[in-house]
């Protein structure tokens, strides 16, 4: 058992995130206008937006509320939209895992492999500190937490931070496995609700875009170090796609098998 509390860590990160966001906002002293061309449904239009402040999501909301609510990405290729959806699901799963356990368990999130829809499941690798074989009810509870998160309709907030700021956000003592050797680079941090995570992005706009979701399995991963990671897997569909329960059960069944995505090497990361 660890002496750290997940709630305290969340609080600490959130405070630093707000501080960094405020600092970056203060850097922009004067607002320049830019024109954005939009060519799609419902009508072609030209928007006048703020330089370095407006996001594609803001543009979408100006075009139409429907576009803002439904568009996953400012990209027409479904391949990238699928990837963004899968990545967002992994991030939401991380948020659920960090908040669903009792305070005596210190859950440390590690990472998730590059999103690949063809594997049939989205993944989060996590150090739970215990050997855990979840029951059906426990898995269902995790799925319910995912649904609850999507019902809250939380936006994904993006912030680019430098290495030193990121080091503060994911304090090396508090969550060492989130740190890799990318010193000096800018990394992207996403916030959803009270949860913060690093991801290269892009992610979808809002958690409400998640529709049907099931957390299907928790597999212990082989590890050379003393710490043991668990691979938590699930399958989900966007809100706008409805599927027959039989077809969905095929997807659930497949998502129970161990996802073959890259397993994080804790020894190479210097954590054992």
């Amino acid at each position: 058992m660890s002496s750290y509390l997940n709630s305290a860590v969340t609080e600490h990160r959130l405070k630093l995130f707000e501080k960094e966001k405020e600092r970056q906002r203060r850097l922009i002293t004067d607002v320049h206008k830019i024109t954005v061309q939009y060519r799609d449904h419902p009508e072609h239009c030209t928007l006048i937006m703020n330089k370095k402040l407006s996001t594609p999501y803001d543009c979408a909301r100006h075009v139409s509320q429907l576009v803002g609510d439904r568009a996953v990405l400012a990209e027409a290729d479904p391949f990238y939209a699928n990837r963004a959806f899968w990545r967002s699901c992994s991030l939401m799963l991380g948020s659920v895992l960090e908040n669903s356990f009792k305070s005596k368990f210190y859950v440390q999130l590690c990472s998730f492999p590059a999103p690949n829809v063809r594997t049939g499941s989205f993944v989060y690798d996590v150090d739970l500190g215990i050997d855990w074989t979840p029951t059906k009810e426990e898995l269902r509870m995790l799925s319910a937490q995912m649904v609850r998160l999507s019902m809250q309709k939380l936006p994904f907030e993006r912030l680019s931070v430098k290495w030193y700021a990121q080091r503060l956000l994911f304090h090396i003592l508090i969550n060492p496995s989130k740190i890799d050797g990318s010193a000096g680079d800018e990394v992207t941090v996403y916030r959803v609700g009270r949860f913060l995570d690093m991801s290269c992005g892009p992610l979808m706009a809002n958690t409400a875009q998640l529709g049907r979701v099931t957390i299907t399995a928790v597999h212990p991963l082989p590890s050379a170090s003393s710490r043991r990671l668990h691979r938590v897997q699930g399958v989900a569909l966007p809100h706008s796609i409805l599927m027959n329960h039989f077809s969905y059960s095929i997807l659930e069944k497949r998502a129970r098998k161990l996802n073959e995505g890259r397993i994080p090497d804790l020894v190479a990361m210097g954590l054992s």
């Binding site: 899968w86 829809v117 569909l237 796609i241 497949r254």
Partner: peptide, 10 residues
């Protein structure tokens, strides 16, 4: 290439 069709095809 929609996500449900990719999943079912795989």
């Amino acid at each position: 290439n929609w996500i449900h069709n990719v999943l079912l095809e795989e």
